[in-house]
Amino acid sequence: MNNNKFEVLLRNESGRLYNYLLKILRNKEDAEDILQETFIAFHKKMNSIKDSSYKSYLFRTAYHKALNLIKKRNAKNKLVTNFPEMEHFADGSTKNNEQQNELVKDALSKLKPEEALLIDLQFYQKMSYKQIAEVLETTQSAVDSKLVRAKKKLIKIITEQKKMQEK
């Protein structure tokens, strides 16, 4: 019974979670690993989590696991800067999906992981402030001010990206 529920949830939510992880980790293997770890952790706890909290549990867990990985990476001095950058579409051609996705991943990975999560939850997961506050275990007003800060940073990052492309 529970296994069916788990499978339905996995098939419904793994895409969103995977894309969230891709955006902040910018690496498919890492996103796959964390996705798997997240669902395994969820499966263990499933019985003690309310149905209405499944989604926030999944995002919160994925976020913390991704955060740990980012910290480890940073400790090893393997910063995200050695990932594919966008110089290969400086030719002014129309950007394809892959290139557009790279730009978004590039921008979001320059935010703090918590800020990237906030943006993802609001924009891609269409969550309300209340739902986001549940994921991050914080207040709605904290969500608001953090989102405002994150978007201000994003505006700067997008402007920088444009300058780079025009070069």
Partner: peptide, 22 residues
């Protein structure tokens, strides 16, 4: 800007791998 992101597919077999491991 964010809207230009197109969701990428979960790699083939990953869901099944997760189901197997649980």
């Amino acid at each position: 800007f964010l809207f230009q992101y197109t969701e990428e597919d979960v790699p083939a077999g990953l869901n099944e791998k997760i189901l197997n491991s649980v």
